[in-house]
Amino acid sequence: MTSDMPARMLRLLSLMQTRREWPGQELADRLEVTLRTVRRDIDRLRELGYPVEGTTGPAGGYRLTSGTDMPPLLLDDEEAVAIAVALRTAASASGVTGIGETALRALAKLEQVLPARLRTQVSALQQATTAPVTYGAQEDGPHADPAMLAVLAAACRDHETVTFDYATRRGTPGFRRVEPHSLVPAAGRWFLVAHDTRANDWRIYRLDRMTGPVPTGQRVPARTLPAPDPAAFVATKIATAPARYRAFATVHAPAAAVLARTQGLPERVIPIDEATCTVDLSGGSLARIAQLVAALDADYTLDAAPEVVGYLRAAAERTLLRTRSVGDSWPEPGHGDVNG
Rank of each mutant, 00 (worst) to 15 (best):
105 R>S: 12
166 Y>I: 06
307 E>V: 14
37 T>A: 08
29 D>F: 09
254 P>I: 04
12 L>M: 15
191 F>Y: 12
208 D>Y: 03
272 I>F: 08
333 P>W: 05
290 A>N: 14
148 M>W: 03
325 S>G: 05
97 T>G: 04
19 R>V: 07
291 Q>G: 06
40 R>V: 07
162 V>H: 05
171 G>P: 04
2 T>P: 00
267 E>D: 13
22 W>L: 00
309 V>G: 00
212 G>I: 09
59 A>N: 11
75 L>N: 03
284 G>K: 09
107 L>R: 02
36 R>S: 13
320 L>Q: 12
24 G>M: 02
189 R>I: 06
176 R>P: 03
283 G>C: 10
266 P>K: 11
24 G>R: 08
15 L>M: 08
324 R>S: 06
36 R>G: 09
41 D>S: 06
135 Y>C: 11
295 A>C: 05
80 A>V: 07
261 R>E: 14
337 D>L: 10
246 R>Q: 10
4 D>M: 14
217 G>C: 07
321 L>T: 07
64 L>K: 01
191 F>D: 00
53 E>I: 12
67 G>V: 06
66 S>A: 15
80 A>W: 02
73 L>W: 08
206 R>M: 11
295 A>R: 14
88 R>D: 01
276 T>L: 07
131 A>I: 07
16 M>Y: 02
83 I>A: 13
207 L>P: 01
137 A>T: 11
40 R>I: 11
84 A>T: 10
31 L>D: 02
78 E>C: 15
127 Q>T: 09
199 A>W: 03
34 T>I: 04
238 I>R: 11
317 E>A: 14
164 F>I: 09
281 L>D: 01
184 V>G: 02
315 A>P: 00
305 A>F: 00
8 R>D: 03
60 G>M: 08
190 W>C: 04
149 L>Q: 04
133 V>T: 01
327 G>R: 01
88 R>G: 00
95 G>P: 04
244 R>E: 10
99 I>G: 02
212 G>C: 14
72 P>W: 12
31 L>R: 04
337 D>T: 09
282 S>N: 06
129 T>M: 15
134 T>Y: 14
38 V>A: 04
226 P>V: 08
77 D>T: 11
297 D>N: 11
183 L>S: 02
260 A>V: 12
225 L>R: 01
209 R>Q: 13
226 P>L: 12
54 G>Q: 12
288 R>Q: 10
241 A>V: 01
182 S>I: 01
253 A>K: 07
143 H>T: 14
182 S>D: 11
222 A>D: 06
170 R>S: 06
117 R>C: 06
312 L>N: 00
92 S>Y: 02
242 P>H: 04
54 G>R: 09
81 V>L: 07
109 K>Y: 06
212 G>Q: 15
